[in-house]
């Protein structure tokens, strides 16, 4: 059918308002996954300063931690990690076939819980940086 018309990925991101809970869970899980693997590479890169000895390691870590931006990014990382963990638990249950009827509620629960944990952790994360 060379004459037929390919509407392409019509539904994908232009229609985000119509996404259901399961779809949002997938989008967030994928996004947080990308962030976490990206962070793992940078994390090991920063820790690699330990190969040059204790002083380089200490000055690098303390230099980074003194930056307010880094502290804020750490809060972001916490949010990303906590969501990935909580939604990951939800997905493990889905894989075991447990509670599939309430998969939308468990997604909202993981969102709310992520918010609560992150807000509660902000003081600890930014103390001394501002």
């Amino acid at each position: 059918m060379s004459q037929s018309y390919d509407r392409g990925l019509i539904e994908d991101f232009g229609r985000w308002r119509e996404f259901t809970a399961g779809m949002w869970a997938w989008v967030f899980h994928k996004f947080t996954g990308w962030v976490l693997i990206g962070y793992l590479f940078t994390h090991i890169a920063v820790l690699s300063t330990s190969l040059q000895g204790a002083e380089t390691f200490n000055s690098t870590i303390q230099g980074l931690e003194s930056l307010a931006l880094v502290r804020l990014l750490e809060v972001g990382l916490l949010a990303v990690a906590v969501f990935h963990i909580l939604n990951g638990i939800r997905l493990l249950f889905v894989d075991l076939g447990v509670g599939l009827e309430s998969q939308d509620k468990s997604f909202y629960a993981s969102l709310v819980l992520t918010g609560v944990i992150v807000v509660a952790s902000v003081p600890t994360f930014v103390s001394g940086a501002f």
């Binding site: 259901t20 399961g22 869970a25």
Partner: peptide, 9 residues
């Protein structure tokens, strides 16, 4: 299958 539940919905 990424368990998005779109089909089930």
């Amino acid at each position: 299958c990424q368990t998005q539940f779109s089909c089930t919905n």
